[in-house]
């Protein structure tokens, strides 16, 4: 991380901690901010697969579900009650790790299939996770998992959102991460040029699912109640909308997309059911007027490391980009 980046990050974290500790913001506003943060984690991690690697994953809600249930089992069933609040970070990381392992397994079909067919594999994965959870009586089956304590606060959400943005950004702009982009542009040419495409895909899926798991853990401990229906296809669709609204292949786009989508849904709440009619219309109009999304393959300058090629691959960004 460049030096110029460090101070803003720490101060944002500090501010969010103060807000949590002293209740500086209305609790409703805090809640919305937390949703925004969780959605940023989700859309940034999904963008890694869908935007940067050019695959079409529809199973992200499945990863989220695994993370949510893993963390809930840990804090409710495994950890002693007195220690659970302190061990919550461990539960979040563990949720991420378990999800990452599953994500790595799901990367295996991606070695052989691409495009629409891989999309269906991920879709099937999401459905299988949901159905299996619905059948597990020990986890509450379709009734859901009750009795989760509220450990998620704004500080944790902000911390993990920044971690996700930071890790994905550093990965994408590393020389190994370049391989991800090369897979999107032309897989055969990439492997001919010496990119180990399998390794790249494995890593991208692992990283992406790790953060989806983390987001699931935060989500579970924010709502204090989870059931399999929360992680169905609608959830995955929601994430896709955030990613494509913001623009594929752009971390900044994912952040903007998640913010706009979440806040807009909240603002339109007075419309009741009609907001769910209005949202898709706006989405379709956006796609027609601006098919690449709001940011569409371009990036905020502060998200581009000091020396490197921009995500368009054409222009070299000099070291004044971040203000080192």
């Amino acid at each position: 991380m460049s030096k110029g980046f460090f101070l803003p990050l720490v101060s944002v974290l500090l501010v969010s901690h103060l807000i949590t500790a002293y209740g500086l913001l209305d609790s409703y506003v805090q809640l919305v901010l937390m949703y925004v943060g969780i959605n940023i984690i989700l859309s940034v991690s999904l963008n890694l697969i869908n935007g940067y690697m050019g695959e079409f994953s529809v199973g992200h809600a499945g990863f989220m579900a695994i993370g949510a249930y893993t963390s809930a089992i840990l804090t409710v069933r495994m950890f002693p009650d007195a220690l659970a609040p302190w061990l919550f970070p461990i539960a979040v990381v563990a949720a991420g790790v378990v999800t990452a392992i599953v994500g790595a397994l799901l990367a295996i079909p991606s070695f052989k299939t691409r495009g629409d067919y891989l999309a269906i594999v991920t879709l099937a994965f999401g459905m299988i996770v949901k159905s299996v959870l619905e059948n597990m009586d020990s986890l509450g089956a379709a009734r859901g998992f009750l009795g989760i304590s509220k450990y998620t606060n704004l500080t944790w959400v902000v911390f993990w959102a920044m971690a996700a943005v930071w890790m994905v950004r550093n990965f994408i702009y590393s020389s190994f991460g370049r391989g991800v982009l090369s897979v999107r542009e032309d897989e055969i040419a990439a492997s001919a040029a010496g990119v180990n495409t399998r390794q790249v895909k494995l890593f991208a899926f692992t990283l992406s699912s790790f953060f989806a798991g983390v987001a699931g853990a935060l989500y579970a401990h924010l709502l204090m109640f989870i059931n399999p229906k929360m992680f169905d296809l609608t959830k995955s669709t929601e994430m896709l909308i955030m990613v494509y609204l913001g623009g594929i292949g752009s971390i900044g786009g994912s952040i903007v997309g998640a913010m706009i989508y979440t806040v807009l849904l909240e603002l339109l709440r007075p419309l009741g059911i009609w907001r769910m009619v209005l949202m898709p219309i706006m989405l379709v109009l956006l796609m027609i007027l601006r098919p690449r999304g709001i940011m569409g393959l371009s990036e905020f300058r502060w998200l581009i490391p000091s020396v490197g090629v921009s995500s368009k691959g054409a222009k070299i960004v000099q070291d004044d980009a971040v203000g080192d």
Partner: peptide, 20 residues
């Protein structure tokens, strides 16, 4: 992909419009 997202959007629209 924009066509696919549009299709998802149209689907959501039809569902929610009927629901409304």
């Amino acid at each position: 992909v924009s066509a696919i997202i549009t299709a998802l959007g149209v689907g959501m629209f039809l569902e929610n419009f009927t629901l409304a």
